[in-house]
Design a protein around this nucleic acid. Structure first.
Lengths: 145, 145
DNA sequence: TTGAATGCAAAACCTTTGCAAGCTC
DNA sequence: GAGCTTGCAAAGGTTTTGCATTCAA
């Protein structure tokens, strides 16, 4: 079974577990999210439906994102302001962020060692890790002067 | 020099660097933050002034928190909803969070290994680390069933 | 058939902003 | 005195909610 299908299953299982229904709108939202390779917020997702003429209300998008989050289909991404940002969960390509308090620049980084350590800690706490949000705040090379 | 005074110096230096002034209100806000041992948001900080009869406007609080953040006096804390949460920066007692997607419970954890790894990564990227925000999302022991 | 989901628009919430008056330096 | 700050209240942007209607199981 492909990863994508596994995630859809996880979503359906969550709905089942909660006594919720797999509606047409939820299917649309799930599908659309899979097509987005960047991070996105609720409104930009809604816009994609609007531009295409799909009849999905903004409230429906807002109401369903938490379910996608809870099922691990999407994860929180580095927010750039007030809005919540998300990105679809993929096993590869994950990165974390260093945020410069001076120039606000965002440096992406990846560390296998870090990922491994998180797995180890999760295991210690009997926690089933789905995704994480890790940001380092400080000053970049230019701004630390 | 005590840690607390060092942080006040960092705050004053930031103001200087930006051509800003060390006003009575900024002093009040700095002091009040030092008295809070838990995490807090802008509004609860404002309430503390209001209850005590101090004349500091909500807008002033909102306008100054970013400066305390930038100077490293406070840091972002695990937000529990939409609001931004902060906590004062202390060298000891820092912890990160595992957030259960099922019951929303928050498990605090601490790992020296993790802290060390972050320092190492920061060094690699010539990044001066001030604080970080690290949350693991998944399912706790009870909810993973 | 029954409880859940949707759409719409209004409401709620948190945060930011404009402006006149007041302070630092 | 010049320019940054503040207080106030109004505005702004994002997310949530109430309710009647529609839909999944």
């Amino acid at each position: 079974m492909t990863k994508t299908k596994e995630r859809l299953e996880a979503f359906k299982e969550l709905l089942d577990r909660k006594g919720l229904k797999y509606t047409y709108e939820r299917e649309c939202i799930y599908d659309e999210v899979q097509r987005i390779d960047q991070h996105f917020d609720a409104d930009s997702l809604y816009d994609r439906f609007k531009k295409r003429g799909a009849r999905i209300a903004r409230a429906t998008v807002y109401r369903n994102l938490p379910l996608l989050l809870e099922s691990g289909v999407i994860q929180k991404s580095a927010g750039e302001g007030k809005r919540d940002f998300y990105e679809k969960t993929t096993s590869k390509g994950h990165h974390d962020h260093m945020v410069c308090l001076g120039c606000k620049r965002i440096i992406e980084f990846h560390s296998d060692e870090l990922e491994a350590l998180q797995d180890k800690l999760s295991h210690q706490y009997k926690f089933k890790l789905i995704f994480h949000d890790h940001r380092l705040f400080g000053y970049c090379e230019k701004c630390r002067a």
